[in-house]
Design a protein around this nucleic acid. Sequence first.
DNA 1: GAAATAAATTGACCTAGGTCAAATAAGGAA
DNA 2: TTCCTTATTTGACCTAGGTCAATTTATTTC
Lengths: 190, 190
Amino acid sequence: MERYFKKIEEHLASLDPETLSRLNDISSERIYPKGSFLLEAGNICRHSFFMLEGTARKYSLHDGKEITTEFYFKDDIAVSFRSYGLQIPSEEYIEAVEDCKVSITDYYQYEALKKESLQIATLDLLIMEYYALWLEEKLYQQRTMDATERYVSLLNKNTEIIQQMKVGHIASYLGVSFETLSRIRKRLSA
Amino acid sequence: MERYFKKIEEHLASLDPETLSRLNDISSERIYPKGSFLLEAGNICRHSFFMLEGTARKYSLHDGKEITTEFYFKDDIAVSFRSYGLQIPSEEYIEAVEDCKVSITDYYQYEALKKESLQIATLDLLIMEYYALWLEEKLYQQRTMDATERYVSLLNKNTEIIQQMKVGHIASYLGVSFETLSRIRKRLSA
DNA sequence: GAAATAAATTGACCTAGGTCAAATAAGGAA
DNA sequence: TTCCTTATTTGACCTAGGTCAATTTATTTC
């Protein structure tokens, strides 16, 4: 996965100034206070959110329960991919876990830019590939690891998640009940 | 998902003849007999395989057991995405379930083409987005449906899988043991 | 077509993790 | 600080689906 970050960084570094300024032209900054929503279910995700400061999470509701699908930190891109890509109403919420400063980019303006600029299309492709890799990894872990292993794996990779997010949100992210995660944590700390 | 197919088809229809011929230039046909491998774990996935005829499946080994991750039919693109994208040794096998006729495209030649042609880069992006959408859907089903519901869902969407693939392969694809799937099938047919 | 091999079914039993409910603990508001 | 609300922990119990083993049924192969 780190190799992919590298690919993306290299590509970003190679962008010419004009392309960068065009990207900049279609973005604007905004602050979302803690507890507010960058996106609510039912609305179409018309923007992507590049995280400048703060933390957020994405979740959906199933049988009245929240399923956290992703956590966002500095430099992550928050978006409900399905809603954004198809421009259909979202099933997901994106919530500011703490105050967030984000750079917002409009879907249509970005799409237009992608049609004109190979550099941007390539950037988008790299980001997409990274996301697919991440999804594959998640699916594989879900299949092959038990709840404790998944938690430990998350613990090793993303210490910040464990420190900043609620047990209930981490639990649904890992695909276990919060009671079970509570027990896992107890066992591990003993 | 169908809406995405449409997007891809429209884009394909819009490709200019020169781009198409360049795509054609870097592709070649090949037959894989039933039981043979389009890709074996340990090797780098240096090609993508566009299915012209036959059926195939992708799987990995975990604790000596096969986990089927994808089935391929006519017009599908078979590739071990992680190995292909990063050009690292594959953890996955792609096996011809029956005799397969495929159109093979070389990774490096395709990458070169993507760097020159916005149309190709865009095509690749659309395919990538479709794959990510498919992975998201799979992950969501895994979280929210029990084994029977997942089987019925597969049954409704891909009758061909049920008809052509072995129970054991379908079971690992659904994330259940083959004994459990056998019982599910019995219950449903009763 | 018979023997050999692989796949699928069925039964008995077990466990990871879910659910429900009660008890603490920890943040916020006032 | 105290009250109120929201999270977390802990216990008791339950179930979906896993594992192991024995058959039965299909497929190959000769």
